[in-house]
Every structure is written in structure tokens, then in C-alpha cells.
Simulated assay, not measured.
Amino acid sequence: MKKLYTVLLLSCLPFLAPARETTDAPPDTVKVGSYVISVHDINFHDKEYTVRFWLWFVYDNPDFDFSKQLDIPNAKSIEPPEIIPDSIDGKAWAIMKMKCTMKEKWDVRDFPFDSQHLRVQIENTLFDKTKLIFDPDIKGSQFDHDDAIDGWTITNFKVSREENVYETGFGDPSSASQVFSSFNIEMEIERDAWGLFMKIFIGMYIAFLISIVSFTPHPAELEPRFGLPVGGLFAAVGNKYIIDSLLPESSSFTLVDTLHALTFVAILMTLIVSAISLKLVDRGNEALALTVNRQGAKIVVGAYLLANIVFIVMALS
């Protein structure tokens, strides 16, 4: 009889046990968009720029408070935003005017013919992707086509959603990482840089022209043959230091480094041609000295111009 009671009890346990929830609640969706007002104070040396933009959120969950929960991980500083709370179609509607100083790793390999990729990453600091998912307002997100950025052209603008993984549980021993939904504003910018190119490289090219003037005196005239190239070399070095002060430190060989290195080598070749010509004059072979001087000048100038054209075209492509 006891065995019968045991069997009946075990068969009833599944019906007596409370039902277990098998599915988690889906995350709340937040409609988010942006309008970029301006991008300015672009600073290559300090690796930063300033951006001003409107940001709006449309959502249902009353626990969301973007005036306190907003974060931009790749910003250096964020000024307190201007907030306009409202509602639309029964949902909360928060409009915010933002001003941020952004950090940026500039790509200056082709400076000043460079193009840059700017990205503003926006997150909610309190709710991860299990509670909040951003839905980008692609149609409504735009930028000011007239005044957004001076000296540059925005060639591509888009907003998108990504997942940002933090390799930490922020003190939660049960979690090794957390994933947050992020709303990204991305812009590709480039500029018509010929005016800037002439401004920053005019000193270098004048230094080269000064050095090749040394080909005009007779090979026996020691002072102008060696004094002019040395003076041009110092001028070219000074020009490079000025340009380097505008750019961030970079381990890669940039267009600025390449053109200045070509100038240094060309001035060195000018001195070598003068030295060979002077040696031939001292040996009494003046006709050969004049020939070496003339042919050397053609080779140095021609090679310098050709190399400059090749590297500039490569930077433009």
C-alpha cells in the first residue's frame, strides 16, 4: 500500500510544482536619431575635434532617463546637454543638444591629401542589450550641408547600430563581460588640399631651388657652390619641423616625410655633383668638370621632379 502512495505522489509532483518561466522578456527598443550641426576645431596634434549635434530618443520604458544615463565612450569631454522633454504618439520623446570634444586617431599618411573617418558612439550607461536596443532613425538623421564643416567635404554620412562588448562584469562575479547596444554617427570627410599643400611645402621647394642655383657658378667657385645647398638644407629642415608641429606623432612614413626626404637627398646630390666637379677642375680637366656639372644638374632636377609627381599622385589615389 505504501508503494502505491509513493507512486501516486511522484506522478502528481509535475502538476504540483510551480510553472517555470521559459522565456525572458525582450529588450525595449529605443528609436534614436541625430542631426549634426557642425564639426570644428579639428586638431591633428592633440588628436581631437569638436562636434555639435542634436540627438533624439523615442521610447516607452519610463526607467530610461537619457539625460542621466547617456554616455559617449570615445569622447574626451561632454558638455551638459540642453534637454527638451516631450511626448509623441503616447511615447516619451527626449531631444538633446550636444557638444562634445572627441578623441580621434588621425590617419596622416597622405596629409594634406588625407581623408578621415569620424565616429561618435552613443550608449546608455545603465541598461545593456538585454534591456535596451537602439533602433536608428536612418531617414531622419542628417547633417547641415551648408555649415557642418569648413575646409572639408562630408562625402559619406550614416547612422547605425552596433554592439559594444566590455570584457568585464563590472564587479559581477557571475558575468565575465557585458554587451551594450550603441548608436553610431559616422562621417567620411575629405578636402581639396592644393591650397594647403602649397602653403606648407612652399618653403621646402624654395629651399631646393636655392640649392640648385649652385649649379650656375663655375665649378671652381667654392663658396657659392657649397654655401647655397647648405643654406637650402637648413631651410628645408626648418620647414619640416614646422609641419611636424601640426601633426600627431606617427611611426609610419607619411607624405610629408617622403617629400622632405627627397629634398634632403636632392640637396645632398647637388653637393656631391659640386664636389666631383671641383675635383676635376683641380686635376686640370675643366671641360669634363663642366660636363659633369651640366649633366648632374639635369639628373638631380629631373629625378626630384619625377619622384615628387609619383608620390603626390599616389597620395591622391
Rank of each mutant, 00 (worst) to 15 (best):
F134W: 07
E190P: 03
T153W: 03
A148I: 00
S181F: 06
D46Q: 13
S277V: 05
F253H: 11
N184S: 08
F311E: 11
F264L: 12
T125N: 14
M96H: 01
N164E: 06
I276P: 02
E190R: 00
Q69I: 00
T270N: 10
D147Q: 13
M269F: 07
T291M: 02
E79C: 03
A75T: 11
G90K: 11
Y59E: 04
L259D: 06
T168Q: 11
S34P: 06
D71V: 11
F170I: 09
P14H: 11
H260I: 03
T168E: 12
V58W: 11
E21T: 09
T270H: 06
F183C: 04
S211E: 09
Y241G: 10
L9Y: 11
M198V: 06
I185N: 03
D110Y: 10
N239K: 08
I242L: 14
V301T: 14
T291I: 02
P73S: 15
L280V: 05
H45W: 08
I78K: 00
A235H: 07
A176V: 06
L118P: 04
S87M: 01
M204A: 14
Y59I: 05
A207M: 06
D63H: 10
M102L: 15
I122H: 02
M1A: 11
E249Q: 10
I149P: 11
F170D: 09
A19W: 10
F253K: 15
E79Y: 08
Y166E: 06
G151A: 00
H218N: 12
S174P: 04
M204S: 12
F208H: 15
P224Y: 07
D110R: 12
E48I: 02
P62R: 12
V281F: 10
A17H: 09
V30A: 14
T263I: 03
L255S: 13
E249I: 03
Q178E: 06
K279G: 01
F180T: 04
W56L: 08
V310A: 03
M314Q: 14
Q295P: 01
M269W: 08
L118F: 13
P85L: 02
E286Q: 01
L262G: 09
V213I: 07
V159W: 07
S250P: 00
W106Q: 07
T50C: 01
D89W: 11
Y35K: 06
M102V: 15
K199H: 13
C100Q: 07
D147T: 12
R225Y: 06
F311H: 10
D257K: 13
I122V: 09
R191Y: 05
F143V: 05
R225A: 02
D46V: 01
A17P: 07
S67A: 13
Y304E: 10
M1W: 02
M269A: 05
A303W: 04
I242V: 13
G151R: 00
V230S: 15
P219H: 09
G284T: 05
R52D: 14
V273I: 14
E163Q: 14
H218T: 02
A236H: 02
S211A: 15
S11L: 15
L228G: 06
C12Q: 14
F226V: 05
Y205N: 08
S274N: 04
A275G: 07
F134M: 10
L280Y: 04
M187P: 01
D244C: 04
S182D: 12
V30T: 15
K240W: 06
V120Q: 07
V230H: 15
T50I: 14
F201S: 01
L305Y: 02
D128K: 14
A235Q: 08
V256I: 12
